[in-house]
Simulated assay, not measured.
Amino acid sequence: MPMAADDIADMIRAAIPDADVEITDLAGDGDHYAARVVAESFRGMSRVAQQRAVYAALGGRMGGVLHALQLTTAVPN
């Protein structure tokens, strides 16, 4: 069963409360998304650590309910 974009954003915001989250459904199928996550709490973290934090927020749904996520993370300007 596909995962809704709002559910993905809500899960990320629950784990990273200061996150500004933009989700785009890339294929219109609910399985392939792009996410841009910007958070001050990422400051000082490597990109890998930032992305791990986002994947952790998704609670193991990657590769199962959520098939593909093109992920971009950043700190605010």
Rank of each mutant, 00 (worst) to 15 (best):
T73D: 13
A34N: 06
N77C: 04
R36E: 07
S46N: 06
S41N: 06
D7M: 12
E40I: 02
M45W: 03
A19S: 12
R52H: 14
G59C: 08
I23Y: 10
Q50F: 10
A49P: 02
A14G: 08
A68S: 13
L26T: 01
D25M: 10
L26I: 05
Q70L: 14
V54N: 14
A49N: 03
L58C: 11
A49M: 03
F42Y: 01
A56K: 13
G64P: 08
V21K: 08
V37F: 09
G28A: 13
G30I: 06
R13Q: 13
Q51I: 06
A68N: 03
R47S: 15
A27C: 03
A9L: 00
P76H: 10
F42P: 08
G30E: 13
L58Q: 04
E40L: 07
L66Y: 10
R13I: 07
M62Y: 03
D7F: 07
R13V: 01
T72C: 11
Y55M: 03
L58Y: 05
Q51F: 00
A27F: 00
P2C: 05
A27K: 01
A68C: 07
I23F: 11
G60R: 13
L71F: 10
R43Y: 12
D29V: 00
V48Y: 02
V65G: 12
G64E: 09
L66N: 12
A5P: 08
I16H: 13
A14D: 15
E40A: 14
A35Y: 04
D20V: 03
L71D: 07
G64T: 03
V38S: 10
